[in-house]
Write a protein that binds this DNA or RNA. Structure first.
Length: 167
DNA sequence: GCCAACGTTGGC
DNA sequence: GCCAACGTTGGC
């Protein structure tokens, strides 16, 4: 009688961006509240975008090199990994001659804004929260721009943002 | 502005 | 394959 079909497990991530390059307000201004997450040029991050970030996964948006540095909102993955075409365009800032459409090096996903936090959850707040002691974002020297987030970290941050933990 | 921590590059 | 030099990230 037990249901054997395991519920598809959703995964949780954190994407970093410098708001001067792309901010949550830029995303909110998009008509569809959707953007492709281009420009990731790190192999470890690439592997996650290509292989692990799945439709329906939740994504925190984090503003680095910002005032304040903070998690500023929540997004949902609406398209899974596909080639990052900005790598093919010599005029693009993220152009990479090693990548081409026949054999792409770099990948991206599409994310859609679910909620911009009324109040950003600042880095200082994150550091003060014992539940987040092991969070990758807070480890010194952690420069990965795509990071996995645990379920507990996800729920803790949502709570800090004043949102229900099951959104 | 400083600098630690990384990742990448290239000489050997 | 090693490793020094260099460039970048990103918090402080």
């Amino acid at each position: 009688m037990a249901k054997r079909a395991a519920a598809k497990s959703r995964n949780y991530w954190l994407f970093k961006s410098e708001p001067s390059a792309f901010s949550i307000d830029d995303l909110a201004a998009e008509k569809t509240k959707t953007t492709f997450w281009d420009g990731v040029r790190n192999y470890q991050a690439r592997n996650m975008l290509r292989d692990e970030v799945k439709l329906g996964d939740r994504v925190f948006l984090y503003h680095s090199n910002a005032d304040p540095m903070a998690i500023v909102g929540l997004c949902e993955v609406v398209r899974e990994g596909y080639p990052d075409h900005t790598a093919f365009d010599p005029a693009n800032k993220h152009y990479d001659e090693k990548s081409n459409p026949e054999n792409p090096t770099w990948f991206m996903v599409d994310i859609k804004l679910v909620a911009k936090f009324d109040e950003p959850v600042t880095r200082d707040q994150l550091k003060d929260e014992p539940q987040l002691a092991d969070m990758m974002l807070l480890r010194r020297g952690s420069r990965l721009s795509i990071q996995p987030v645990t379920l507990n970290e996800y729920q803790t941050v949502l709570k800090m943002a004043g949102l229900k933990a099951n959104i």
